[in-house]
Computed example of a mutant assay.
Amino acid sequence: MVKSPRESLHRIFRHNPELFAHTLSRLFGVEVAEPTSIEVLNSDCTELEPLERSVDSPVMVHAPDGDYVVAFEAQLEPDKDKRRRWPYYVSYLHDKYACPVILVVICQKASTAEWARTPILVGMEQRPTLMVWPIVVGPDNVPVPTSAEEAAQDVPFTVLAALTHGHDKDIGGILRMLAEALSTVDIDTAGFFAEIGLGDTDARKTWRDLMSAQTYPYQRTLLQEEREKGIEQGIEQGREEGREEMAAESVLSLLRGRGVTVSAVQEERIRSCGDLTVLRDWLLRAATATSTAQVLND
Protein backbone atom coordinates (compact mmCIF):
# COMPACT_ATOMS: atom_id res chain seq x y z
CA MET A 1 0.00 0.00 0.00
CA VAL A 2 1.28 3.47 -0.85
CA LYS A 3 2.48 5.12 2.32
CA SER A 4 1.84 8.64 3.60
CA PRO A 5 4.78 11.07 3.48
CA ARG A 6 5.02 11.09 7.27
CA GLU A 7 5.03 7.30 7.48
CA SER A 8 7.66 6.98 4.76
CA LEU A 9 10.03 9.33 6.60
CA HIS A 10 10.46 6.96 9.53
CA ARG A 11 9.56 3.52 8.14
CA ILE A 12 12.45 3.60 5.65
CA PHE A 13 14.84 3.11 8.58
CA ARG A 14 12.90 0.09 9.79
CA HIS A 15 13.14 -1.54 6.38
CA ASN A 16 16.90 -0.97 6.06
CA PRO A 17 18.90 -1.61 9.26
CA GLU A 18 22.12 -0.29 7.73
CA LEU A 19 20.64 3.09 6.69
CA PHE A 20 20.86 4.55 10.21
CA ALA A 21 24.59 3.81 10.49
CA HIS A 22 25.22 5.16 6.98
CA THR A 23 23.24 8.33 7.73
CA LEU A 24 25.17 9.05 10.93
CA SER A 25 28.46 8.52 9.13
CA ARG A 26 27.65 10.53 6.00
CA LEU A 27 25.87 13.46 7.63
CA PHE A 28 27.48 13.80 11.06
CA GLY A 29 30.81 11.97 10.87
CA VAL A 30 29.70 9.68 13.69
CA GLU A 31 30.79 6.10 13.23
CA VAL A 32 28.69 3.35 14.80
CA ALA A 33 29.01 -0.38 14.40
CA GLU A 34 27.12 -1.85 11.48
CA PRO A 35 23.90 -3.41 12.92
CA THR A 36 23.69 -7.17 12.77
CA SER A 37 19.89 -6.95 13.01
CA ILE A 38 17.11 -4.75 14.28
CA GLU A 39 13.94 -5.54 16.20
CA VAL A 40 10.87 -3.35 15.71
CA LEU A 41 9.51 -2.40 19.12
CA ASN A 42 6.01 -1.58 20.28
CA SER A 43 5.47 2.10 19.49
CA ASP A 44 2.92 2.60 22.27
CA CYS A 45 4.26 4.61 25.21
CA THR A 46 0.87 4.87 26.90
CA GLU A 47 0.66 4.46 30.66
CA LEU A 48 -2.37 3.50 32.75
CA GLU A 49 -3.81 6.99 32.48
CA PRO A 50 -5.93 7.49 29.32
CA LEU A 51 -3.34 9.57 27.46
CA GLU A 52 -1.79 8.02 24.37
CA ARG A 53 1.87 8.64 23.60
CA SER A 54 3.30 6.78 20.61
CA VAL A 55 6.74 6.89 19.01
CA ASP A 56 6.64 6.73 15.22
CA SER A 57 9.21 3.95 14.73
CA PRO A 58 11.18 2.69 17.73
CA VAL A 59 13.67 -0.08 16.94
CA MET A 60 16.13 -2.08 18.99
CA VAL A 61 19.48 -2.20 17.23
CA HIS A 62 21.65 -5.24 17.91
CA ALA A 63 25.30 -4.45 17.26
CA PRO A 64 28.61 -6.10 18.14
CA ASP A 65 29.46 -3.43 20.71
CA GLY A 66 26.06 -3.45 22.44
CA ASP A 67 22.36 -2.92 21.88
CA TYR A 68 20.64 0.46 21.74
CA VAL A 69 17.22 1.86 20.88
CA VAL A 70 16.63 4.37 18.09
CA ALA A 71 13.37 6.33 18.20
CA PHE A 72 12.59 7.65 14.70
CA GLU A 73 10.18 10.57 14.58
CA ALA A 74 8.83 12.11 11.34
CA GLN A 75 8.10 15.82 11.71
CA LEU A 76 6.38 17.69 8.87
CA GLU A 77 5.86 20.98 10.74
CA PRO A 78 6.99 22.51 14.06
CA ASP A 79 4.86 21.29 16.96
CA LYS A 80 5.38 22.64 20.46
CA ASP A 81 3.72 19.58 21.98
CA LYS A 82 6.48 17.36 20.57
CA ARG A 83 9.09 19.31 22.52
CA ARG A 84 7.36 18.05 25.67
CA ARG A 85 6.82 14.50 24.43
CA TRP A 86 10.25 13.73 23.00
CA PRO A 87 11.96 13.82 26.42
CA TYR A 88 9.22 11.49 27.67
CA TYR A 89 9.82 9.06 24.80
CA VAL A 90 13.54 8.99 25.48
CA SER A 91 13.09 8.52 29.24
CA TYR A 92 10.42 5.87 28.81
CA LEU A 93 12.45 3.80 26.35
CA HIS A 94 15.62 4.19 28.41
CA ASP A 95 13.82 2.97 31.51
CA LYS A 96 11.99 0.13 29.77
CA TYR A 97 14.92 -1.35 27.82
CA ALA A 98 17.82 -0.27 30.07
CA CYS A 99 20.10 0.75 27.21
CA PRO A 100 21.14 3.91 25.34
CA VAL A 101 18.39 5.72 23.42
CA ILE A 102 18.91 7.86 20.33
CA LEU A 103 16.22 10.24 19.05
CA VAL A 104 16.28 10.82 15.28
CA VAL A 105 13.90 13.36 13.72
CA ILE A 106 13.36 13.33 9.94
CA CYS A 107 11.98 16.46 8.26
CA GLN A 108 10.99 17.56 4.76
CA LYS A 109 11.44 21.28 5.32
CA ALA A 110 14.62 23.10 6.29
CA SER A 111 12.69 25.40 8.64
CA THR A 112 11.23 22.42 10.50
CA ALA A 113 14.65 20.77 10.69
CA GLU A 114 16.15 23.94 12.19
CA TRP A 115 13.35 24.07 14.78
CA ALA A 116 13.85 20.41 15.70
CA ARG A 117 17.63 20.83 16.26
CA THR A 118 17.20 23.13 19.23
CA PRO A 119 18.09 21.14 22.38
CA ILE A 120 15.19 20.56 24.75
CA LEU A 121 16.00 21.49 28.35
CA VAL A 122 13.95 20.12 31.24
CA GLY A 123 14.52 21.91 34.52
CA MET A 124 16.54 25.10 35.12
CA GLU A 125 18.17 26.61 32.07
CA GLN A 126 21.40 27.13 34.00
CA ARG A 127 21.41 23.55 35.31
CA PRO A 128 18.93 21.37 33.38
CA THR A 129 17.91 18.06 34.89
CA LEU A 130 17.46 16.57 31.44
CA MET A 131 18.61 17.69 28.02
CA VAL A 132 17.36 16.04 24.84
CA TRP A 133 19.32 16.90 21.71
CA PRO A 134 17.73 15.23 18.68
CA ILE A 135 19.71 14.07 15.67
CA VAL A 136 17.87 15.80 12.83
CA VAL A 137 17.87 14.66 9.20
CA GLY A 138 16.44 17.11 6.67
CA PRO A 139 16.85 18.76 3.27
CA ASP A 140 19.53 21.09 4.60
CA ASN A 141 21.97 18.30 5.46
CA VAL A 142 21.00 15.34 3.25
CA PRO A 143 22.97 15.55 -0.03
CA VAL A 144 21.30 14.61 -3.29
CA PRO A 145 22.97 12.25 -5.78
CA THR A 146 24.61 13.86 -8.79
CA SER A 147 24.10 10.93 -11.16
CA ALA A 148 22.11 7.73 -11.54
CA GLU A 149 25.32 5.79 -10.94
CA GLU A 150 25.87 7.53 -7.60
CA ALA A 151 22.21 6.98 -6.70
CA ALA A 152 22.55 3.26 -7.39
CA GLN A 153 25.55 2.95 -5.05
CA ASP A 154 23.33 3.57 -2.00
CA VAL A 155 19.68 3.16 -2.98
CA PRO A 156 18.19 3.50 0.55
CA PHE A 157 20.03 6.79 1.05
CA THR A 158 18.77 7.97 -2.36
CA VAL A 159 15.21 7.21 -1.22
CA LEU A 160 15.90 9.21 1.96
CA ALA A 161 17.15 12.11 -0.20
CA ALA A 162 13.96 11.99 -2.28
CA LEU A 163 11.80 12.00 0.85
CA THR A 164 13.60 14.84 2.60
CA HIS A 165 13.85 16.96 -0.58
CA GLY A 166 10.20 16.47 -1.53
CA HIS A 167 9.59 20.25 -1.64
CA ASP A 168 12.69 21.11 -3.70
CA LYS A 169 12.25 22.70 -7.12
CA ASP A 170 14.65 20.19 -8.67
CA ILE A 171 12.95 17.14 -7.13
CA GLY A 172 12.26 15.86 -10.64
CA GLY A 173 15.94 15.22 -11.22
CA ILE A 174 16.28 13.35 -7.94
CA LEU A 175 13.26 11.18 -8.73
CA ARG A 176 14.54 10.35 -12.21
CA MET A 177 17.83 9.16 -10.75
CA LEU A 178 15.92 7.17 -8.14
CA ALA A 179 13.76 5.51 -10.79
CA GLU A 180 16.89 4.30 -12.58
CA ALA A 181 18.58 3.26 -9.34
CA LEU A 182 15.64 1.09 -8.28
CA SER A 183 16.22 -1.07 -11.34
CA THR A 184 19.51 -2.20 -9.79
CA VAL A 185 17.97 -3.85 -6.71
CA ASP A 186 15.66 -6.83 -6.32
CA ILE A 187 12.03 -6.33 -7.34
CA ASP A 188 10.54 -6.69 -3.84
CA THR A 189 12.88 -4.07 -2.40
CA ALA A 190 12.33 -1.78 -5.40
CA GLY A 191 8.58 -2.18 -5.03
CA PHE A 192 8.76 -1.16 -1.37
CA PHE A 193 10.84 1.94 -2.17
CA ALA A 194 8.70 2.81 -5.20
CA GLU A 195 5.73 3.35 -2.88
CA ILE A 196 7.37 6.33 -1.17
CA GLY A 197 4.83 8.73 0.29
CA LEU A 198 5.39 12.20 -1.15
CA GLY A 199 2.07 13.70 -0.10
CA ASP A 200 -0.06 16.06 -2.17
CA THR A 201 2.88 17.77 -3.84
CA ASP A 202 4.35 18.30 -7.30
CA ALA A 203 6.88 15.61 -6.38
CA ARG A 204 4.12 13.02 -6.08
CA LYS A 205 2.76 13.92 -9.53
CA THR A 206 6.27 13.79 -11.00
CA TRP A 207 6.84 10.34 -9.50
CA ARG A 208 3.53 9.03 -10.85
CA ASP A 209 4.34 10.43 -14.30
CA LEU A 210 7.71 8.69 -14.22
CA MET A 211 6.10 5.40 -13.30
CA SER A 212 3.53 5.80 -16.08
CA ALA A 213 5.91 6.95 -18.82
CA GLN A 214 8.21 3.91 -18.75
CA THR A 215 8.02 0.25 -17.92
CA TYR A 216 10.03 -0.65 -14.84
CA PRO A 217 10.16 -4.21 -13.47
CA TYR A 218 8.99 -3.04 -10.05
CA GLN A 219 5.91 -1.20 -11.32
CA ARG A 220 3.64 -4.15 -10.63
CA THR A 221 3.86 -3.59 -6.88
CA LEU A 222 3.50 0.17 -7.20
CA LEU A 223 0.39 -0.05 -9.36
CA GLN A 224 -1.40 -2.71 -7.33
CA GLU A 225 -3.29 -0.15 -5.26
CA GLU A 226 -4.25 1.86 -8.35
CA ARG A 227 -5.53 -1.28 -10.07
CA GLU A 228 -7.69 -2.24 -7.10
CA LYS A 229 -8.91 1.30 -6.64
CA GLY A 230 -9.72 1.63 -10.34
CA ILE A 231 -11.73 -1.57 -10.35
CA GLU A 232 -13.71 -0.55 -7.27
CA GLN A 233 -14.43 2.90 -8.65
CA GLY A 234 -15.36 1.50 -12.03
CA ILE A 235 -17.82 -0.96 -10.50
CA GLU A 236 -19.39 1.57 -8.14
CA GLN A 237 -19.80 4.25 -10.79
CA GLY A 238 -21.04 1.66 -13.23
CA ARG A 239 -23.96 0.83 -10.97
CA GLU A 240 -25.05 4.44 -11.05
CA GLU A 241 -24.44 5.38 -14.67
CA GLY A 242 -24.13 2.12 -16.54
CA ARG A 243 -21.54 -0.36 -15.36
CA GLU A 244 -20.22 -1.38 -18.75
CA GLU A 245 -19.91 2.20 -20.01
CA MET A 246 -17.94 3.35 -16.98
CA ALA A 247 -15.71 0.29 -16.95
CA ALA A 248 -14.85 0.89 -20.60
CA GLU A 249 -14.08 4.53 -19.83
CA SER A 250 -11.78 3.43 -16.99
CA VAL A 251 -9.82 1.19 -19.36
CA LEU A 252 -9.39 4.00 -21.89
CA SER A 253 -8.48 6.59 -19.24
CA LEU A 254 -5.85 4.34 -17.68
CA LEU A 255 -4.25 3.55 -21.05
CA ARG A 256 -4.12 7.17 -22.15
CA GLY A 257 -2.94 8.32 -18.74
CA ARG A 258 0.03 5.95 -19.09
CA GLY A 259 0.78 7.24 -22.57
CA VAL A 260 -0.39 4.07 -24.40
CA THR A 261 -1.74 4.74 -27.92
CA VAL A 262 -5.37 3.72 -28.55
CA SER A 263 -6.57 3.63 -32.16
CA ALA A 264 -10.12 4.56 -33.17
CA VAL A 265 -10.90 0.91 -33.92
CA GLN A 266 -9.58 -0.21 -30.52
CA GLU A 267 -11.52 2.53 -28.73
CA GLU A 268 -14.73 1.46 -30.45
CA ARG A 269 -14.13 -2.17 -29.49
CA ILE A 270 -13.62 -1.24 -25.83
CA ARG A 271 -16.65 1.05 -25.70
CA SER A 272 -18.91 -1.48 -27.40
CA CYS A 273 -17.98 -4.34 -25.06
CA GLY A 274 -21.00 -5.33 -23.00
CA ASP A 275 -19.28 -7.98 -20.87
CA LEU A 276 -18.28 -6.55 -17.48
CA THR A 277 -16.02 -9.53 -16.74
CA VAL A 278 -14.04 -8.90 -19.92
CA LEU A 279 -13.82 -5.19 -19.14
CA ARG A 280 -12.46 -5.97 -15.69
CA ASP A 281 -9.77 -8.16 -17.23
CA TRP A 282 -8.87 -5.40 -19.66
CA LEU A 283 -8.65 -2.91 -16.80
CA LEU A 284 -6.17 -5.14 -14.96
CA ARG A 285 -4.04 -5.55 -18.07
CA ALA A 286 -4.16 -1.81 -18.81
CA ALA A 287 -2.21 -1.10 -15.61
CA THR A 288 0.97 -2.76 -16.95
CA ALA A 289 0.52 -3.32 -20.71
CA THR A 290 2.77 -1.46 -23.15
CA SER A 291 0.21 -1.51 -25.98
CA THR A 292 -3.55 -1.62 -26.36
CA ALA A 293 -3.17 -4.84 -28.38
CA GLN A 294 -1.81 -6.53 -25.24
CA VAL A 295 -4.87 -5.40 -23.30
CA LEU A 296 -7.26 -6.74 -25.92
CA ASN A 297 -5.15 -9.88 -26.30
CA ASP A 298 -4.88 -9.33 -30.07
Results as ranks from 00 to 15, higher is better:
E241V: 08
A213G: 12
A151P: 06
I135L: 15
Q224C: 09
R176L: 12
S212M: 12
M246A: 14
I231S: 00
H165I: 05
A179C: 07
E195F: 14
H165Q: 11
T164A: 00
V136S: 01
L160Q: 14
M246R: 13
L222K: 04
I171W: 10
L163P: 13
G230S: 09
F192T: 04
T146H: 14
D186W: 11
T164H: 07
T184L: 00
I231G: 00
P217L: 04
A203W: 00
R243T: 13
E232Y: 01
G234Y: 00
A190T: 04
P139G: 07
P145G: 08
V155R: 01
T189D: 10
R220G: 12
R208P: 03
A190Q: 03
E195P: 09
P143H: 06
G138C: 12
R227V: 14
T158N: 06
Q214T: 06
S183L: 00
Y216W: 07
W207R: 06
A190C: 08
K229M: 11
D170R: 15
D200V: 15
P217H: 11
G191M: 01
A148T: 13
E195V: 10
D154P: 04
A194S: 12
L163K: 15
T146A: 11
R176Y: 13
P217T: 08
T221I: 06
E245H: 09
N141V: 07
D188T: 02
V155P: 06
M211A: 10
V136N: 09
L210G: 07
D168V: 03
T146D: 15
T146C: 12
D154W: 10
V137T: 02
M177W: 04
I235A: 03
D170T: 11
T206R: 13
T206F: 08
T146N: 15
P156F: 05
E226H: 02
G238A: 05
R208D: 11
E195A: 13
A247L: 13
M211D: 03
G138H: 15
S212Y: 13
F192M: 02
Q233H: 03
F157K: 10
L163W: 14
G238Q: 06
I235C: 01
N141I: 07
Q153P: 07
A181V: 03
W207Y: 05
G230V: 00
E225D: 09
L178Q: 02
D170S: 13
V137S: 06
I231T: 03
Q153A: 12
K205S: 10
D168I: 08
I196N: 13
V137R: 03
A162E: 04
A148P: 15
A152G: 09
H167P: 03
A248D: 14
L175S: 10
E245V: 09
A194G: 14
T158C: 07
F192Y: 11
L198I: 14
A194F: 04
I174N: 13
A248T: 14
V142W: 08
K169C: 08
T206Y: 05
L178E: 02
Y216K: 01
A179V: 02
Q214V: 08
G191N: 01
E180W: 06
T201S: 14
T146G: 15
R208L: 14
A162F: 07
P139C: 06
L175D: 05
P145M: 15
D209T: 05
P156N: 10
E195T: 07
G230P: 02
Q219L: 04
P217S: 09
T221L: 00
A213T: 11
W207K: 00
T146P: 11
G173M: 04
V155D: 05
P139T: 10
T164I: 05
P156G: 06
T158P: 05
S147G: 11
Q214R: 10
